[in-house]
Design a protein around this nucleic acid. Structure first.
Length: 485
RNA sequence: GCCGCCGUAGCUCAGCUGGCAGAGCAGCGGACUUUUAAUCCGAAGGUCGUGGGUUCGAUCCCCACCGGCGGCACCA
């Protein structure tokens, strides 16, 4: 069933009304409608009126017809725009019999422009008494049910326009998302960052552990990759002296789809010269706290700074009793895990076992904002070695509500060390690791030019929006999530 | 990829391990001048996801496929 099916008489009735409008000399799809006020602005002007109070204030609003009560000589209609809903009163003594009948024969879902005089009904509802109206666009499909809204998840995601028409929650959520993104830009701009744009189509992908999408450029007759991260290009801009840069845009990863993964998703990355990962952590928690405040976050999690900080090894020790720093090879770590009754996947290497401990036993418990610091260097091919602890890298991941929302490091800027890391990745790729980093000579050449000490981070914007809106599925915060055909 | 649940009118949902497919909203015809999910009367509206199978007979039982959701696996 659904939106693509053949019209039934519900559709035919709307077609007939379209034709009768035209027959009456009314253009059902006019070009524009000037001087429209947001409904919320009209409401704000009359917030102090009392029930039964009349005014002489004329207003012009526009939106979608959402409900109709009554018929004949007087009726009430509800009009919805992006900012809210307002009641309209249609009276035959104001409009005349012909215009009245024409108005009442319009369909729910039609787009209307309304001129009216504000008053408050006996029951206390702000209302516009219609003095004139205009059809702004005829709707040829019935809107979703007016009480229950649209609840079918598949239809809500495949036809997001219906979700937005029917569900005020959905409108509010995506407006919040927009405010999150603009607040991020304002924050970074005010701290001396410049926004840049680097290639989405890349001859070589890199900067994250993920499989890419492949595409083809016809004129060049060569395959290109959709980026999995912006990291490597952004660091080349740090080499170039731009000092503080950020990019906010889509990354693409050719992986499974679940409640926290969409194949295309919005990533913020920033890089700052002369900073390390702890400086980046400070800015990250300030950014999130600022954005939460800007969008009026009132959820259950305290996002204010400072956040809890704990090393990865401590967190795993606390949750499992396993001290990964004491068992530094695959065999002894696996034995320790077995001794404590923990599952040990047969194929896993030492860093993969660490990741297993982290994702199974630590991540789900990280509800309050938490930085997990200092990851195994094997898992972090672009992070600088820890200044104090052998075998670790200066890297953190930030968790909120059990979700990983950020990943950051003190960036590796020694080109020879970076080259050795690429060699290791090449060995992994040779062993069948589909996510190993490809060898990127252009990036190495840039590092050889000299990159200042640099801190960098990637923040998953979709997941951050999930936290800020209390949503459990990434599909709820992406307007058009990936679906099968 | 594996397992489980789900798919019935435009929308929201009923439908008894098998016997002609149900309601509300919306829509259509009518009544009504202060409604707030308006109310009342009337007449309509269906490829029960798709394709097979079992059966005298399938929305219901079986198989496959499509799509969605959840979990596992994989993965930031």
């Amino acid at each position: 069933m659904g939106v693509g099916e053949e019209p039934s008489d519900v559709f035919a009735a709307r077609r007939r009304k379209l034709e009768s409008l035209r027959a009456a000399g009314i253009e059902p799809f006019p070009h524009a409608f000037d001087h429209v006020e947001p409904i919320a602005a009209v409401r704000a002007q009359h917030a102090s009126l009392t029930p039964g109070e009349e005014t002489t204030a004329a207003h012009r609003v526009a939106g979608r017809l959402a409900a109709r009560r009554g018929q004949g000589k007087m009726a009430f209609l509800d009009l919805v725009d992006r900012s809210g809903r307002i009641q309209l009163q249609a009276r035959v003594d104001e409009l005349g019999p012909e215009r009245m009948e024409q108005l009442l024969s319009l369909d729910l879902g039609d787009l209307l422009g309304i001129d009216g005089i504000a008053f408050v009904s006996r029951r206390g509802e702000l209302t516009l008494r219609i003095t004139d109206y205009r059809v702004l666009a005829k709707s040829l499909r019935p809107p979703p049910e007016k009480h229950h809204g649209l609840t079918d998840v598949e239809t809500r995601h495949r036809h997001r326009e219906l979700d937005l028409i029917a569900n005020e929650d959905a409108r509010e959520l995506f407006m919040t998302r927009a405010r999150v993104i603009s607040a991020i830009r304002r924050f970074l701009d005010s701290e001396g960052f410049i926004e840049v744009e680097t290639p989405v189509l890349q001859p070589l992908y890199g900067g994250a552990a993920a499989r890419p999408f492949t595409t083809h450029h016809n004129a060049l007759d060569r395959d290109l990759y959709l980026r999995i991260a912006t990291e490597l290009y952004l660091k080349r801009l740090i080499v170039g002296g731009l000092e503080r840069v950020y990019e906010l845009g889509k990354d693409f990863r050719n992986e499974g789809i679940d409640s926290t993964h969409n194949p295309e998703f919005t990533m913020l990355e920033w890089y700052e010269a002369y900073a390390d990962y702890l400086d980046v952590a400070d800015r990250c928690e300030r950014l999130v706290a600022h954005v939460a405040s800007e969008v009026g976050y009132a959820g259950p999690i305290d996002l204010s700074s400072p956040w809890r900080r704990q090393t990865l090894a401590e967190a795993i020790l606390d949750r499992t009793g396993v001290d990964i720093l004491r068992f530094r090879d695959r065999g002894t770590l696996a034995a320790e895990m077995r001794a404590r009754g923990l599952a040990v996947p047969e194929e896993d290497t030492w860093p993969q076992l660490v990741d297993e401990l982290l994702s199974k036993h630590v991540e789900p418990a990280l509800i309050e904002p938490t930085f997990l610091l200092d990851y195994p260097v094997e898992l972090s091919p672009f992070a600088k070695r820890h200044r104090a602890v052998d075998g670790l890298a200066e890297r953190f991941e930030a968790y909120i509500g059990g979700l990983e929302i950020a990943n950051a490091f003190t960036e590796l800027n020694d080109p020879d060390e970076q080259r050795r890391r690429f060699e290791q990745q090449r060995a992994l790729a040779g062993a069948g690791d589909l996510e190993a980093q490809p060898y990127d000579e252009a990036f190495l050449a840039a590092l050889e030019q000299g990159m200042p000490p640099t801190g960098g981070i990637g923040i998953g914007i979709d997941r951050l929006v999930m936290v800020l809106t209390g949503t459990r599925s990434i599909r709820e915060v992406v307007l058009f999530p990936a679906m099968r055909d």
